[in-house]
């Protein structure tokens, strides 16, 4: 019972928590660049400000798909928190991504299209790896439910270390961090799919980014099994890793990213699948 209250709280507060993570991240990023950086609550200030802007949109479909993206992402996140089926979660997340990609395509703006194209390509880069990780998890726990991972006594990390490494490799793609931030590359496509959003509609897309943080860090948290402290430690370490990586690499192009994903991350996940399958660890 206690657990489910926490789960529901987490679901309800996910955007707030995500915003906090984003705020801390901006602070950490600034410190890594030897700057002071914005206050931790900066994302919420942004949020409040965006609320006041004049409502502008390219067309309703575009604006609506952005809002729908937020809702469906929240929903996918809720399923993840409640410990639903891993494959289903991946595809629900894909649904959310599909909506924002379609939104990107729905305007006749070149950069928006480029961003949508690149987002679609990033799906190609990270989705197979995630699916393989999900199947490895099944091999380990005998259930496709994420809740089985949450409940695992031995941290999953020790059982499938390569899957964790593969996850770390694709996390920058999902979180749109350098070196794989191609889909929102500011200098190239000016934010990609979120380019055409403004004001209150941008808020939905902006907040959806926060939800993505929670989503990704929960995937990491999952690897700690039922040991919450280890989970938090893992999340913290991943957080540092992601940001340090973001601040120590340049952006690669989409071909290099695909190559990396297919020749490094996917074999890594595959190796892990073999290892769990034949109980090598």
């Amino acid at each position: 019972m206690n657990n489910s209250i926490i789960q529901i709280l987490l679901i309800v507060l996910a955007p707030v928590l995500g915003g906090l993570i984003y705020g801390v991240e901006r602070k950490v990023k600034a410190r890594m660049q030897r700057r002071i950086g914005p206050p931790v609550l900066q994302p919420f200030y942004d949020f409040l400000k965006l609320m006041d802007k004049r409502k502008m949109m390219v067309h309703s479909t575009h604006a609506f798909l952005g809002i729908l993206h937020f809702i469906s992402l929240w929903f996918a996140l809720a399923v993840l928190i409640m410990g639903g089926d891993f494959i289903l979660i991946i595809f629900l997340h894909l649904l959310a991504t599909a909506l924002i990609i379609l939104a990107g395509f729905s305007t006749r703006s070149i950069f928006s299209h480029l961003g949508a194209n690149r987002s679609a390509i990033s799906i190609l880069a990270y989705e197979p790896v995630l699916v393989i990780i999900a199947i490895s998890a099944y091999m380990l726990t005998g259930s496709f439910d994420v809740s089985a991972l949450y409940a695992s006594d031995v941290p999953v990390l020790f059982k499938m270390p390569l899957a964790f490494i593969a996850l770390l490799m694709i996390l920058p793609i999902k979180l749109k961090k350098s070196p794989f931030d191609i889909s929102e590359a500011h200098q190239e496509v000016v934010g990609g799919v979120e380019l055409e959003y403004s004001g209150i509609f941008y808020e939905a897309v902006y907040t959806a980014k926060w939800l993505d943080y929670i989503f990704c860090y929960l995937l990491v948290f999952m690897f700690a099994g039922n040991n919450w402290w280890l989970g938090l430690l893992l999340v913290a370490l991943t957080f540092i890793y992601i940001n340090a990586l973001d601040n120590s690499t340049a952006r690669v192009n989409y071909k290099q990213m695909l190559r990396f994903s297919f020749w490094v991350a996917l074999p890594m996940a595959f190796l892990n699948l073999l290892m769990t399958m034949f109980h090598l660890i």
Binding site: R35, P38, L50, G191, S198
Partner: peptide, 17 residues
């Protein structure tokens, strides 16, 4: 470091103040 004041150089007129 004008990001101290929350400023971001967005480069995108639709999200700028």
């Amino acid at each position: 470091d004008i990001e101290r004041f929350g400023m971001i150089n967005t480069g995108n007129p639709k999200q700028s103040d």
